[in-house]
Simulated scan of single mutants.
Amino acid sequence: MENIKHKLTVLAHIAEEFNHKDVTWAIGASLLLYFKGITSEFHDIDIMIAEDDVETVKEILLSLGNIIQSKPNSKYKTKCFLEFHVDGVEIDTMAGFGIIYQDKEYYFPLKKEDIKDFTEVQGIKIPLQSIEEWRIYYELMERDEKVKMIDSYL
């Protein structure tokens, strides 16, 4: 619980900076599932960002922590994937999220108008991607356990 509290404090700090700079962003993956009460844990913070905001996000996160060299994964075709460590927490940012499934490329750019759900952490507004979107992503990523978790929730 202490660890989760720390991660959420880091998230609130990042969110405040992103919101202040008008970045188009939203939480996805396991942290999204955590916020929806689908899972009780998450390891890192996955942030989807608009492709136009990559430089701003990079600048903000570099001012808060450091960038990590990540290994490319052939299952993903994300236009920009950047991994950071901020106060001991792994932050993965993705712009132009892409998944390769059965030799076909699926492209899911984040658009401001697609963000319809929000939560609050320490009084800071946190935009969330939709659970339905993530069910599709997890299905394409062949993450069956996550698909089952979402199906039970829905």
Rank of each mutant, 00 (worst) to 15 (best):
A95M: 06
I124M: 12
G88K: 04
E90D: 10
N19H: 04
K125T: 15
D22K: 13
L33Y: 03
C80R: 14
P127R: 10
I115P: 09
I124Y: 09
S63A: 14
E59L: 06
F18V: 05
L11N: 01
M48F: 14
I150A: 09
I27T: 06
K116A: 05
G96L: 03
I14E: 02
Y106R: 06
S152V: 09
E120V: 11
S40Y: 02
K104R: 11
E90N: 11
L11K: 02
I68N: 06
D144Y: 13
D151S: 12
Y34M: 05
A12S: 14
S30R: 06
K5D: 07
V54S: 03
S30I: 03
I4F: 00
L140W: 03
I136F: 10
F84E: 03
N3V: 08
Y107A: 07
M48Q: 12
K146G: 07
E55L: 10
L61W: 00
D114L: 12
Q122M: 14
A15C: 08
D114C: 12
L11Y: 03
E59K: 13
V121N: 07
Q102T: 05
M48T: 10
E133M: 15
I124P: 02
E105P: 11
K58M: 07
E90C: 09
D44Y: 04
I136N: 10
E51K: 13
F42H: 04
Y137H: 13
Q69V: 11
T24M: 04
E133Q: 15
P109Y: 04
T9C: 07
F35E: 12
T39M: 05
D117R: 12
I99F: 03
L140M: 10
G88M: 02
I49C: 13
E55T: 03
S152M: 13
L62M: 10
E145D: 15
N3S: 11
I4S: 04
E139M: 11
K104M: 12
L154F: 08
I27F: 03
K148D: 15
N73T: 05
I45V: 07
P127K: 10
I99V: 13
T93A: 10
L64E: 04
K79A: 10
K111F: 13
V86T: 01
F81Y: 12
K148H: 14
H6Y: 01
G98S: 13
L64M: 11
Y138N: 15
T9M: 08
I131P: 01
K36F: 04
K116D: 09
K116E: 10
L8K: 06
V57G: 04
V10Y: 01
E83D: 05
L82S: 05
G123P: 05
H85G: 05
L128W: 04
V10A: 01
K58F: 04
D144Q: 11
I45P: 00
R143E: 15
T78F: 00
A12V: 05
I60P: 10
K79T: 12
N66H: 15
V147S: 12
T39W: 01
F35K: 11
Q122Y: 14
I27E: 07
I60K: 06
E41F: 06
E17V: 00
E132I: 13
T56M: 06
H20N: 14
